[in-house]
Structure formats: C-alpha cells, structure tokens
C-alpha cells in the first residue's frame, strides 16, 4: 500500500515538473520563470527524498543537500538579475 502511494506521488511530482517546464518555456515574464525554476528545485528535492524512502537507502541525502544549495543560489542569482541587471557587482550602490 505505502509503496503504491510513493510511486503515485512520484508520478504526480513528474507531472508537476512537466507543467512547470511549460511555464519556464512559455512564461510571459521573467519572474514567472524564476518562480518556476525554484519550484522545480523543491519538487526535485521531494522526489529524491521519496526515491530514497522507496529504495530504503541514505545515499541520496547529500544529493538533497547539494540540490537545495544550488536551487537557492540559482534563485538568488536569477532574482538579482531581474532586479538590478547585473549578478556580481564591482561596488554596491548604497
């Protein structure tokens, strides 16, 4: 029973990622794409967690941590590009 629920939720995560991919390609504005990329990261983390429950292993926990860090950095870089036009500044204006 729990196995079937896990596989069903994995399938639903894949559907969600496919829909978010549509939003990235089609997305009218850049903030739509930033939100979609961040949500794909969260969905991938959850999917990896469920895979590691199904396979009964702890080997993927570091992959979850690294994916979380990379999604965080990617979202920050994308939103900074939207807000300021540059990603790494020579000297911040304040």
């Amino acid at each position: 029973m729990i196995e079937k629920i896990m596989l069903l939720s994995l399938a639903l995560f894949m559907v969600a990622i496919a829909l978010l991919l549509y939003r990235i390609i089609k997305g009218p504005t850049l903030p739509d794409r930033a939100i979609a990329i961040d949500t794909i990261g969260v969905n991938l983390i959850s999917a990896i967690a469920i895979v590691s429950i199904v396979l009964k292993t702890k080997a993927f926990l570091e992959a979850i941590l690294i994916l979380g860090i990379l999604a965080f950095i990617g979202t920050i870089a994308f939103s900074k590009y939207i807000e300021r036009g540059v990603i790494v500044e020579r000297k911040s204006r304040d």
Binding site: I73, A77, V88, K91
Partner: peptide, 20 residues
C-alpha cells in the same frame, strides 16, 4: 565535489555582497 560546493559558497558571497 567538495571543491564545487566550496566554490558555490564563495560565489554565493560574491552574488550577495560585491566584489570589493
């Protein structure tokens, strides 16, 4: 992999603050 993660941390610092 350790170098990649350490480099990501340094890049995160560069993104948040500025180069100087």
């Amino acid at each position: 992999i350790g170098g990649l993660v350490l480099g990501s941390g340094i890049v995160l610092l560069y993104i948040t603050f500025d180069i100087e």
